[in-house]
């Protein structure tokens, strides 16, 4: 009882702090390699949040108000579901479902619906184009993610994330299935449309699905994307980096460190990889990355038969 309360509290804390951590780390990653730290690294995110809160909320002509206001909150809720699936230790976990790997897959699938809804409900051209783009790309991310995650679940012989961690006692999945984590990171950038895969909310669409959103709901949308990135990092750390496993430190600290590592890696990739054109991105996903995920799955299957 105490542990489930503690894990729920942990989810809430990450929900509250996640966006700030992501914003600070993103600024650090962007400026630190150039040797010049921006002066507003620590206060910049807070002042932007305060500025957004005081902004007037934009209205378009005849939007679907309910869906438009609901979509950012739903995306945040999906991110919270993802956070609730991350096991902090063998017992400290908010929802220890026997099919938690599949539930994470559903979070990715439902995110497609929510992002489409966000762009569609504004009843404006550029958001709608962004929404369509995400659907076209999101279906390919979901497929890659599915195969890679089945690969991670194979050695555990279970769809439960705690079992997936337990199966990495001798060897982490990142070594056992070397293709898994790189492919999964691509899925993470796609799911949160971050960095090179920011095609739904990209600047060539003047902000894409969020082009017409301002004020508090813009803040919720940006926070939701950041929390989704954190939740994704937590799942990646669990499925490929051994979750709570590690010497000397207690389990939850290891999960935190690994999550922050994946997060920093994603933000670094987001800052330093070039952007891909949407058409090329679809080609890349279906012709290169999807066959690679098949290879990953076959690899995992052969290893599981051997062992």
């Amino acid at each position: 009882m105490i542990e489930s309360l503690a894990s729920l509290l942990m989810v809430l804390v990450v929900l509250a702090l996640g966006p700030y951590v992501v914003a600070v780390m993103d600024r650090l990653v962007a400026t630190a390699p150039r040797g010049a730290l921006a002066s507003d690294v620590w206060l910049g995110p807070l002042s932007r949040a305060a500025w957004l809160l005081t902004q007037h909320a934009n209205a378009t002509e005849a939007p679907d108000w309910q869906a438009w206001r609901l979509a950012p909150a739903l995306y945040l809720a999906l991110a919270a579901v993802g956070l609730a699936l991350v096991p902090w230790s063998p017992t400290l976990i908010a929802t220890d479902l026997v099919t938690s790997v599949v539930l994470w897959g559903s979070v990715e699938a439902l995110a497609t619906v929510v992002i489409f809804l966000h762009g569609w409900s504004a009843n404006a051209v550029l958001p709608l184009i962004g929404a369509y783009r995400y659907v076209a790309l999101g279906l390919s991310y979901i497929l890659i993610s599915m195969f890679v995650l089945i690969g991670a679940a194979l050695p555990a012989e279970s769809l439960q994330l705690t079992q997936v961690v337990a199966s990495q006692e001798s060897l982490w999945n990142v070594v056992r299935q070397p293709l898994g984590l790189p492919l999964f990171l691509v899925v993470g950038l796609g799911l949160t449309f971050w960095g090179p895969l920011n095609l739904a909310d990209s600047t060539d669409l003047a902000g894409g699905t969020a082009a017409e959103v301002s004020g508090p709901s813009r803040l919720v949308w940006e926070c939701a994307r950041a929390v989704m990135l954190v939740a994704f990092s937590g799942i990646a750390a669990t499925a490929f980096l051994g979750g709570w496993l590690g010497p000397w430190l207690p389990g939850p600290v290891w999960v935190l460190l690994k999550t922050l590592f994946v997060l920093a890696l994603l933000l670094w990739l987001g800052q330093w990889l070039p952007r891909v054109a949407p058409e090329r991105c679809v080609t890349l996903m279906w012709i290169v990355l999807l066959p690679l995920s098949f290879v990953d799955l076959v690899w995992a299957g052969v290893l599981a038969l051997w062992a």
Partner: peptide
């Protein structure tokens, strides 16, 4: 029916999309 329930979520999310 934990698998079927979760399978409903992702199957139907994609289908309805």
């Amino acid at each position: 029916a934990e698998y079927l329930g979760v399978a409903m979520f992702f199957m139907m999310a994609v289908e309805m999309m």
